[in-house]
Amino acid sequence: MKNDDQNEDLLFFQEMADVQKLSDNNQVVYLKNQHKTAKAQDPELTQPENILTTGFLDIVECTTPLEYKQPGVQQGVLDKLRQGKYPLEASLNLLRKPVETCRQELFSFFLQAQAHSLRTLLVVHGRGRHDQSHANIVRSYLAKWLKQLDQVQAFSVAMGKDGGAGACYIALKKSAEAKQENWERHAKRSR
């Protein structure tokens, strides 16, 4: 019995000998199947000017959860988003980064999400202990910036498993291509 355990351990270590640790500095994680990405243009080549502003900022109190929906978006969409019922397709980590870096990375992340027709995103911004903390400043800017992006339908504080008050879910509008696919799928059913 003991010899079998030793053999299993030896086999395990032989199989794992060439395994290397993944890099810890990944900023963007894509979770969606990338089969359609060949059609999408590279956003780096045609990246428009960053529209996110860093001017006047209304500080969002630490106790106030981030939450917003565009006019015309049903309350059920926001409720499902808040409950984490939409599958996350990508995430961005903004922890401990300067505000300007956060602004640039968020805009680039948003363009990439649009290029890949992603709908549900997670942004980790951190949680401050007081209203003037760096994490709460980034969080307040994030609330401002997301409202400046027309494609953002809604955003809400994340569930505990995804970062809780230190993260937020973002729901994007469907791309024109996704709307067309949806229309065609439903048109075939109605025939």
Rank of each mutant, 00 (worst) to 15 (best):
61 E>Y: 13
73 V>G: 02
31 L>Y: 14
27 Q>I: 11
153 Q>M: 09
135 A>L: 02
171 A>E: 11
10 L>S: 13
20 Q>D: 07
41 Q>L: 14
76 G>K: 08
90 A>K: 05
97 K>D: 08
40 A>C: 14
47 Q>D: 00
57 L>I: 06
64 T>D: 13
52 L>F: 04
174 K>V: 00
152 V>Q: 01
103 R>Q: 10
17 A>N: 02
103 R>K: 12
96 R>F: 09
120 T>V: 12
87 P>D: 06
46 T>W: 11
71 P>M: 10
185 R>Y: 11
38 A>Y: 15
90 A>T: 07
76 G>V: 08
82 R>L: 04
95 L>S: 00
187 A>Q: 06
144 K>G: 06
158 A>I: 02
115 A>T: 12
189 R>W: 09
126 G>E: 01
118 L>C: 09
161 K>N: 10
13 F>A: 13
138 V>K: 01
131 D>V: 04
99 V>T: 13
32 K>Y: 06
53 T>W: 03
101 T>I: 07
165 A>N: 13
46 T>K: 14
160 G>Q: 12
51 I>T: 09
85 K>R: 14
160 G>K: 04
165 A>M: 11
188 K>T: 07
140 S>T: 11
9 D>M: 10
50 N>C: 12
92 L>R: 00
54 T>H: 04
12 F>C: 06
190 S>D: 11
9 D>S: 00
